[in-house]
């Protein structure tokens, strides 16, 4: 109860003003967003802001349905961070490394069984700003186990410029979000679902103009 109240306060007082005034989020395909669980949102991951932007596309009433999958080694590091992550953001902590006695995706299965909307980053961690890294196997395993669940591919652009890994200062940029039509594993004829989704995101990105970073020292490489 306290967690939920804090989540709403956090979104109203901090997330919404930052995303509305300092950044400015432009969403395309909002109608493609699955309204009810079980569903999976997959997106490229370049910034801590990714999760907040994806969550903010939902109304305050539906916030609690959203469960971002996050790395336990980072988000559960200190007791305070762990408490805030699990109670306010409502993450599903997943062990990225270490001894595996059981299926590490187990908590995600629970969330989907409880009709929640899982936010999943197939790249595994925040990569280079505005680059889409190779998708890991996790999303395939998940989709094969839940072939009936809608998976919505979402491309975000600009968040890696606004707040990249390793720099705590936010710089204002407009941010673009494109939500593609959700697909189910059982409906798409592919053996490699993660590759399929990776290509979907890359197609979304190639479909329009984005100001990528200028490569540094192009002459040195040539």
């Amino acid at each position: 109860m306290l967690g939920r109240a804090l989540q709403i306060l956090f979104f109203c007082l901090i997330v919404k003003p930052v995303l509305l005034i300092i950044l400015g989020v432009r969403v395309k395909g909002h109608e493609n967003l699955p309204e009810d669980g079980p569903a999976i949102l997959i997106a490229n991951h370049n910034s801590h802001l990714d999760t907040l932007v994806l969550m903010n596309m939902y109304s305050l009433r539906n916030l609690r349905k959203l469960r971002p999958v996050a790395a336990a080694d980072y988000f559960m590091k200190t007791p305070l961070r762990a408490w805030l992550s699990t109670n306010v953001i409502n993450i599903i902590p997943i062990a990225r490394k270490g001894k595996r006695t059981s299926d590490p995706l187990e908590p995600i299965y629970d969330a989907l069984d409880n009709d929640q909307i899982v936010i999943f980053y197939p790249e595994g961690s925040r990569g280079e700003p505005e680059k889409i890294a190779d998708f890991k196997r996790g999303i395939s395993i998940l989709a094969e186990k839940y072939p009936d669940v809608s998976v919505a591919p979402i491309l975000t652009f600009g968040l890696g410029k606004a707040l990249p890994k390793g720099d705590p200062v936010i710089v204002p940029f407009f941010v673009d979000v494109i939500v593609d039509k959700p697909c189910k594993f059982k409906d798409c004829k592919t053996d490699d679902f993660s590759e399929f989704l990776e290509q979907k995101l890359k197609t979304l990105k190639n479909g329009q103009y984005f100001a990528d970073y200028i490569e540094e020292n192009p002459l040195v490489d040539a």
């Binding site: 410029k161 200062v169 710089v171 204002p172 407009f174 990528d212 970073y213 200028i214 540094e216």
Partner: peptide, 26 residues
């Protein structure tokens, strides 16, 4: 003005090292 500048900086390609300097420009 802020909106127009933000739109401009979003539109034009910049370098990674320019990030903090953009903040000063704002």
């Amino acid at each position: 003005s802020f909106l127009a500048l933000k739109e401009y900086f979003t539109l034009v390609p910049t370098r990674k090292v320019d990030r903090r300097v953009l903040l000063w420009a704002y």
